[in-house]
């Protein structure tokens, strides 16, 4: 389980995170939803130890973030994470060199799933293709959790549907997923849990099926109610 408790972060005299708490279990697909600037990406970065927080704790299966947790949690940011001079296959080999959890079999499967050419240079990838390659890098390891920052941004509609497919495919498997988005429509039916973030605080966190069941509301309905109120 990824447990985030009472995260507080100030940056340039602004409270970017203002006491954020939530948990994501293994096998669960959770989504951090918020408008731009709500602090979604910052939460993911904080979980990966890529930005300091003033207060709060982050535990992954009970342990603090450190080099061991980087094998357990893979992170798919919204930008390139391998040097642009590398060919895609060199990027994959780099990952295999460093991560014990890297699964070359799954990497091959994913490259085929997204139709990527291993001979292409990373620096030459279009925004959408780069996003797909990022997904390959993040999903290929046998990690227990996957964090994805805006996996749908910059990707055309056709590929988006394809992308949504990975959540219901075996490529995610029984991992826990935490993703961020500001457009819920595509993935509304794919997520188990929605965590609504506004102004650096969790304003509501709920089980999507239960809200449909009990209140007859879609995630978008709740989002409109809570975030645009």
């Amino acid at each position: 389980m990824i447990e985030v408790a009472n995260l507080r972060k100030r940056y340039r005299r602004r409270n970017v995170l203002n006491g954020v708490s939530f948990a994501v279990e293994k096998g669960q697909i959770a989504c951090l939803i918020g408008l731009n600037g709500a602090g979604k990406s910052t939460v993911l970065k904080a979980i990966m130890g890529l930005t300091p927080v003033q207060e709060g704790t982050i535990r992954i299966d009970g342990r603090p973030v450190g080099k061991e947790t980087y094998e357990k949690v893979s992170y798919i940011p919204d930008r390139l994470t391998v040097p642009p001079y590398m060919k895609l296959w060199e990027g994959l080999r780099f990952m295999q060199d460093f991560y014990r959890s890297w699964n070359p079999e799954r990497a091959r499967e994913l490259m085929a799933f997204f139709g990527l050419d291993a001979q292409e240079r990373v620096g030459n990838l279009s925004k959408g293709t780069a996003a797909k390659f990022n997904l390959v890098l993040g999903l290929a390891p046998d990690s227990d959790y996957v964090l994805m920052d805006e996996p749908f941004s910059g990707i055309d509609l056709f590929s988006r549907e394809n992308l949504a497919g990975i959540f219901s495919s075996g490529l995610i498997g029984s991992r826990g997923v935490l993703l961020t988005t500001h457009e819920v429509d595509e993935i509304e039916r794919l997520i188990d849990k929605a965590i609504l973030l506004r102004g650096g605080t969790v304003v509501r966190s709920f089980d999507c099926e239960r809200v449909r069941d009990e209140e007859g509301k879609s995630v978008v309905d709740v989002m409109r109610e809570v975030l645009l109120a």
């Binding site: 990966m48 130890g49 890529l50 080099k67 061991e68 980087y70 094998e71 992170y75 940011p77 930008r79 390139l80 994470t81 391998v82 040097p83 642009p84 460093f98 991560y99 014990r100 620096g123």
Partner: peptide
């Protein structure tokens, strides 16, 4: 620039 390799470097499973 476009090369944000630091994201990867800092999340490698090795001491920073």
């Amino acid at each position: 620039g476009r090369d944000t390799f630091i994201y990867r470097l800092l999340t490698l499973p090795t001491a920073r």
